[in-house]
């Protein structure tokens, strides 16, 4: 199959499944709370409704406020294009350097922060300050875990890492990489604005980070930001799932049959990831923001231990 078509399918698929991931997490959380919950497809309707609505913009804002949704959605989409989720060997394989991912995530965070600060409300400022702090503190862990995976796989592209792990699963070659995966999981929860770092379901100023920044957005812009957030979480979660459970990962040259199996495997992994996130959110409490350095340090040392145990000694 053509590399370009493969990349296209992968990107479109991830973007199309992103709201489903959010829907599944909400559904699983509802079941944990003995509620029936809304349909897993509800986020699609919510986004479509937002797209059709009128927009209100605060008079306090400047041009920055209107640019933010575009930049944030662009960075998330670029992530979906560059990061392998369905399989490896796509058109952008060479460009998916491990050092690029942290930087692209940082651009998205930076613009969200600008959006939060531009509206002149105390909520936006609070969310912005917190988000920026988290983005700064998580950076070493992001780089460290990705470097570890790159060293273990012998490739400096995420794509190569994906391919290598699909060929030789980590539990066969480096079982102690489980620590690195845990660290990467912590990074993803932080980047995806999920428990125990952030509470996506609250509008209480004590606990919110991501929600506080997008508080003033409405209509299509809000839809763009929600979509960007969903894509980011889905891409990162699917990347991690693909590494941990390297079954059904498709090579770009594979036939239609393998492709269908791969897509089914991807949906199953998405379900598992959504369940895991919902499980964490239903069993853990959110950490106090001023204890976040403990979380970040734990993630960093998990990653460092993983690196040392599986590669250096």
């Amino acid at each position: 199959m053509n590399f370009l078509i493969f990349s296209l399918i992968q990107t479109v698929l991830v973007i199309a499944l992103a709201p489903l991931m959010i829907g599944m997490i909400r559904m699983a959380k509802a079941r944990f709370q003995n509620r029936r919950g809304a349909s897993v497809f509800q986020p699609y309707w919510a986004l479509l409704t937002l797209c059709r609505k009128e927009m209100t913009i605060t008079t306090q804002s400047s041009w920055v406020f209107r640019v933010v949704p575009f930049v944030v959605l662009t960075t998330s989409t670029v992530l979906a294009i560059l990061m392998p989720t369905l399989g490896f060997g796509g058109f952008f394989a060479q460009a998916s350097s491990v050092f690029l991912i942290g930087a692209i995530l940082a651009i998205g965070s930076l613009f969200l922060v600008f959006g939060g600060m531009d509206v002149a409300s105390a909520f936006g400022g609070m969310g912005s300050s917190r988000e920026m702090t988290l983005a700064a503190l998580v950076e070493p862990s992001t780089v460290l875990t990705l470097v570890t995976l790159a060293l273990a796989a012998g490739s400096w592209n995420l794509d190569g890492i994906f391919a290598s792990f699909a060929h030789t699963p980590w539990y066969a070659s480096h079982p102690l990489l489980i620590l690195t995966f845990l660290a990467l999981g912590c990074v993803i929860l932080s980047e995806g604005a999920r428990y125990p770092v952030d509470n996506p379901a609250t509008h209480l100023e004590l606990t919110m980070v991501h929600e506080a920044m997008i508080l003033e957005y409405s209509g299509p812009y809000l839809a763009m930001l929600e979509m960007a957030s969903a894509i980011k979480l889905t891409v990162l979660a699917l990347f991690l799932m693909g590494l941990v459970f390297p079954w059904g990962v498709v090579a770009s040259g594979a036939g239609i049959g393998a492709m269908v199996i791969g897509i089914l495997a991807m949906i199953v992994k998405l379900f598992v990831a959504a369940f895991a996130v919902a499980f964490i959110e239903s069993t853990l409490v959110k950490m106090r923001f001023y204890r976040m350095q403990e979380y970040m340090t734990t993630a960093y040392f998990l990653g460092l231990t993983g690196l040392v145990l599986s590669l250096l000694f």
Partner: peptide, 9 residues
């Protein structure tokens, strides 16, 4: 068209 409002505080 966008409706201009105040920031909610």
């Amino acid at each position: 068209p966008v409706r201009m409002t105040d920031t909610w505080d």
